[in-house]
Design a binder for these strands. Structure first.
Lengths: 337, 337
DNA sequence: CTGAAAGCGCTTACAG
DNA sequence: CTGAAAGCGCTTACAG
């Protein structure tokens, strides 16, 4: 493996001129530059990143804790986000370093260690939870980080974040359902009061009010994010005195449960009762009929996060992105119009 | 951030004694060791990994190319594998560095660059394809790597590999179906002759022969790995003069298509016709009835790969692991027995 | 525009 | 058992 010294000897210049040829080419006379570049090419020289990092104390590596859901449940859009994050990092000549850590404050020693030993320059946080303690912990220690998702605290959140406007997403779902003829739209949410759930619920409520649709008694809170719970919740909405003709679920998994319950009753999803989900996970594409779902702009999110982390001055400290709505068979036009 | 020098000064020893306290504690007199450890603790010292790597020329980072399927299709078990790989690496005090690369030989400059610049010590390859060119390319350049999956060449494969016995997996599925009363078991495979597909098919055929079950005309080759193709393939198996009473699919996606087609015909999956898949992806758990599926021991695979890469001498160069079979509602006992 | 010097923070033989 | 020296391969001021 060629070193700077060898290239310098070959091109008959000093090592530092070779270094300049790489990092500040404008400083060289053009003929020198060409000569050095030829030597670099010939010797297939590639700068040793460790030496560089030791000198500059920047490793150009971003730590990312690989999500692990309780009960081994997969993150709905993990691979898509990871791919987006990886690509975004590479456009800033960074790479992603993966690690595992226990949830909550307990895991912070891992973050600290990774940073202190200079394995990473900073972190991208995801799976942000309501009152997530990681943000404050990192900010207090001046460890660089950015967050996908908000902590939903009362005060302003430490550090930069990017998030998707969940309220807008659910509002879009409601508007779409209204346009396709639905008039009684239930909401399937989670029980534990999470900022995420409340955000999405608020969008549903606001859109219903705006369209003069009913909201009273149309909210069901599921105990967990499972198809069984989704089915149970849907059953309650369908058993009401005035049954719903559409269900907005705040996750794809709840939506799938709702679809199952609708079918179990001999009703047709998308015809008798429409359903929408959230996340546009792989599941949404694979079921029949396909599940209409709010989709997060993951590429945009990843790019914004990397920008916040790497060009902190240039990027907005807080960024709320509009989600899209992917319409599939689960929300056809009502009454065959 | 404390350095070795500062710790040395604090403990009143030389830097190299501190280094030894960390890397070869047995060389120190116990009272010196204790004193040094106290200083380390007090100054919250953590060795700078870049300096260490520069000196030892080992970065303890393993490169892994994040899978990207054509058409943005998610890898069925990507998050599970990645989590397993990350954990396995950490038990050997390594970490995973993620990167993207074009498929085939075209992407090899990325691998080469990553290795030459010493961002990684070596690679874990997955998504191994039939006649995958990467293995030979890396071996020819003495770049360390291990492979999840075989290249299915005629000659012995360059480098170490770990794989799952697909034939055994499909054979297990056949045996399970036979035990639950199925007697005419079709196979849903892929069209393009891939080693993977042929391997799984061979297991199905062998088990059928062993159990004196028919195999003639019971193989359908789908053009791609999609539910639509799976449904079409299943239709052919169900339309035959002697229809099948069970379908072994070599992927979960094909199996899902088969389930859909069976239901479309008013038949009950798991009762009238049983179905099994391959991979035990998240999809298998979420559909109704649940999909019986061959499951790969991802933790074991990941651990074996890391062992091969990091303790090449200790680990077997080639390792074929037995998959499991997760039985769910799609393969209930036939005829309500 | 180019080069000699110092130094980033470690580890590795080697003396003592 | 402990320490003085050299060096891993770069970059960063600073002279010339």
């Amino acid at each position: 493996m060629a070193t700077l010294k060898q290239v310098a000897a070959h091109a008959d210049v000093s090592v530092q001129t070779v270094s300049n040829a790489l990092n500040a080419p404008h400083r060289l006379r053009s003929d020198t530059l060409v000569r050095v570049q030829k030597s670099i090419e010939l010797l297939r020289y590639r700068p040793n990143r460790n030496a560089r990092s030791l000198r500059t104390s920047a490793v150009e590596l971003v730590g990312y804790c690989v999500p692990s859901w309780p009960g081994n449940k997969p993150h709905p859009v993990m691979d898509q986000f990871l791919h987006a994050l990886c690509s975004a990092a590479e456009t800033s000549s960074r790479h992603i370093l993966l690690f595992t850590a226990p949830p909550g404050v307990k895991g912070m020693t891992v973050y600290d260690d990774l940073h202190a030993r200079r394995l990473v320059d900073g972190f991208v946080l995801s799976q942000t939870e309501t009152h997530d303690p990681r943000h404050e912990w990192l900010a207090a220690r001046d460890i660089p980080f950015v967050s996908f998702g908000r902590v939903w605290g009362e005060e302003s959140q430490p550090g930069s974040w990017v998030d998707v406007d969940g309220a807008a997403g659910c509002a879009a779902a409601v508007r779409h359902l209204h346009e396709t003829g639905r008039r009684r739209i239930g909401l399937l949410s989670w029980t534990k009061s999470s900022g995420l759930a409340e955000d999405r619920l608020s969008g549903w409520r606001a859109a219903c009010k705006e369209l003069r649709l009913p909201t009273g008694g149309l909210t069901v809170r599921c105990r967990q994010d499972s198809t069984d719970e989704g089915a149970r919740g849907a059953a309650r909405l369908l058993d009401a005195d005035q049954p719903v003709d559409a269900i907005v679920a705040i996750s794809d998994v709840l939506a799938l449960g709702a679809m199952r319950e609708i079918e179990r009753r001999g009703l047709a999803v998308g015809v008798d009762v429409a359903v929408t989900g959230f996340d546009d996970s792989p599941l949404a594409r694979v079921v029949v009929p396909g599940l209409t779902s709010v989709s997060q702009p993951l590429d945009e999110i990843a790019a914004a996060l990397v920008r916040q982390l790497c060009d902190a001055e240039q990027a907005p400290r807080e960024l709320l992105l509009e989600p899209g709505l992917v319409v599939r068979g689960s929300s056809l036009v009502a009454d065959g119009n």
